Simulated assay, not measured.
Amino acid sequence: MGHWLQRNIIEPGKLPLLLALTSFVLTFVITRVITRMIRAGKGPFRNIDSGGVHIHHVVPGVLLTIAGGFGAVASGRHGFGPALCAVLFGVGVGLVLDEFALILHLDDVYWTEQGRKSVEMVVLTAALVGLVLCGFVPFGVNDTSQDELAGRGSAVVTVALNFFFALLALSKGKARIALFGVIVPFIAVIGALRVARPGSPWAKRFYRGRPRTRAKSQLRAYHHDRRWVVLSRKAQDWIGGAPDTPAVESGRTADRR
């Protein structure tokens, strides 16, 4: 473990990224625990009044993100400064993405179906940064051998091909596969070669005069969503809390803090 940490985190200069990811995840978890306790009226936060002036935690999140980002630029690469700025940045991003859905919809949709986008964005961000920390980016390791340096050329070509396939997957309406395809070798090929989703730019452009392919696209999308959407929503509810029912939403404005 110590050798892996030295070789893949400390030596390439990824320790600030690890600190940022850790503080980001912890901030999101702590924030969701607090908001769910307030919502349920339990624990030390049960008596918090949500009336009056309410400042969403995206506001301090933005301030911390700005402070951490500019601080990292100004502090250089050595000393305690980069670590501190990484923690500030991670905390800020955790607060911002926890309310990502509110920024996207410009409304307090924290405990609604639209609010699931915040949880999804947090999970995607944590997963992508985690992949980078695990060494899926073929750059940044010092004191490498000649064989390792020669291998980087093929790695760069692989990344370029992955990016090309990621663009194809994105045009076919498969954004998640496209995101991970930029980092994980050849994962975007799956999305690029399979049938596009209905309504995607690819489907609108190339399936217009192909009724069989269009029907196949709709059928695959139906079976995919039926299989995975329920599981995805259960996972989101477990991580971030289940959204309110419409009847509760109509009588609730901002009851989480």
Rank of each mutant, 00 (worst) to 15 (best):
M1A: 13
G2D: 15
R7K: 15
N8F: 14
E11R: 13
K14I: 04
L21K: 00
L21V: 01
S23P: 06
V25M: 10
V29C: 04
V29M: 08
T31Q: 09
R32A: 04
V33H: 09
M37T: 00
I38T: 15
I38C: 15
R39T: 11
P44K: 06
F45L: 09
I48F: 12
D49I: 07
H54P: 01
G61R: 06
V62D: 05
A67D: 04
A67W: 05
G69T: 12
G69V: 01
G69H: 07
F70D: 06
A72K: 09
S75N: 08
G81N: 04
P82K: 03
A83S: 14
V87P: 01
L97Y: 07
E99W: 09
E99I: 03
L102D: 14
D107L: 07
D107T: 09
G115N: 02
G115Y: 02
S118D: 07
V122L: 11
V123T: 09
L124G: 07
T125E: 05
L131Q: 09
V132N: 03
F136A: 08
V137D: 05
F139A: 11
V141H: 14
D143S: 13
T144P: 00
S145I: 00
Q146K: 13
Q146M: 15
E148C: 03
L149V: 10
G153N: 08
S154Q: 13
V157T: 09
V157C: 06
A160K: 03
N162K: 04
F165Q: 02
F165A: 10
A166C: 03
L168F: 10
A169D: 02
A175Q: 08
A178L: 07
L179D: 00
G181Q: 01
V182S: 11
V182Q: 09
P185I: 03
P185D: 00
P185F: 00
G191F: 04
R194W: 11
A196M: 05
R197E: 09
R197K: 13
P201K: 02
W202L: 04
W202I: 06
A203I: 02
A203G: 01
K204R: 15
F206W: 10
A215E: 11
S217V: 01
Q218V: 10
L219E: 13
A221W: 13
D225R: 12
R226C: 09
R227Q: 11
L231C: 08
L231A: 12
A235P: 03
A242M: 08
P243F: 01
T245Y: 08
E249M: 11
E249T: 13
T253W: 12
T253C: 09
R256Q: 13
